[in-house]
Write a protein that binds this DNA or RNA. Structure first.
Lengths: 124, 124
DNA sequence: GCAATGGTTAGGCTTTGACCTAAGTATCGC
DNA sequence: GCGATACTTAGGTCAAAGCCTAACCATTGC
């Protein structure tokens, strides 16, 4: 409720686009230059560069330039952070839903009145 | 490169906003009604409802109405899907980066010419 | 029935995101 | 040096995202 992580915002936002996810998938095979990364996409280079910028700003990739070629490489830390958040959440959720299931199971033949906190059940 | 999953787009987009993540965190404690979820946020109700809609469209939550109260609940499948993508990626990345590290380690005193696919190294 | 409660819909505003074209700049190769 | 290569920068369009206010239902409680 309280802690806001711009880092997570950026990482999830970066992951929310298919082009960017595809770039990450390509990079998991090995480093690559801009034009090499851009090749599979039917998109003007400058548009594509924006995607690379989003990825780099999120921290998911790094890049360096040598001569006129800029090479991109993955950088896994931010992904680990995002994955951590998700894993933590999922665990909580599943634990909770398990408890709920067991609870509902117990009063199988009964009325199934309330879920837990405040909401009640029964579709209508 | 080839497969585009609108489902993943939506889930990651849903997760890219701090308000929405906070709602999910709240829901991992238990179901809750709209006004209860909205309470901690300094935001007009209709604006907040949009966030709930994004969450529901992504599949991360469900809701049902009883009388005039709408109750929200988590729905973990889509999160598991997103987590799956990330875990798969991370594994690839880390495996790759490990290989790279070992490789670079081997030619420690040497020149460190190329990374793997195409890009070369050396900061400048 | 009628006011209060709990959500919902409609519409408008502003910012951000995803694209594009056109015009640079900085190597590289001969 | 000079053309080709590999990005970069500038600026413009259009749609989507995030917020808001102002009505508008639908229950509930007295």
């Amino acid at each position: 409720m309280t802690n806001h992580s711009p880092q997570l915002d950026r990482v999830f936002h970066a992951l929310a686009d298919p082009t960017r996810r595809a770039v990450l998938e390509r990079l998991s095979v090995g480093t690559a230059a801009v034009s090499e990364l851009a090749a599979p996409f039917d998109m003007a280079l400058p548009s594509f560069l924006q995607h690379l910028k989003v990825l780099e700003t999120s921290g998911l990739v790094r890049s360096w330039k040598e001569g006129r070629v800029r090479t991109y490489q993955l950088s896994p830390e931010p992904l680990r952070a995002a994955e951590g958040w998700m894993a933590r959440q999922r665990e909580l959720w599943e634990r909770r839903l398990d408890r709920l299931d067991r609870y509902l199971e117990e009063l199988k033949p009964a009325e199934r009145p309330k879920a837990t906190t405040s909401g009640a059940r029964r579709k209508k």
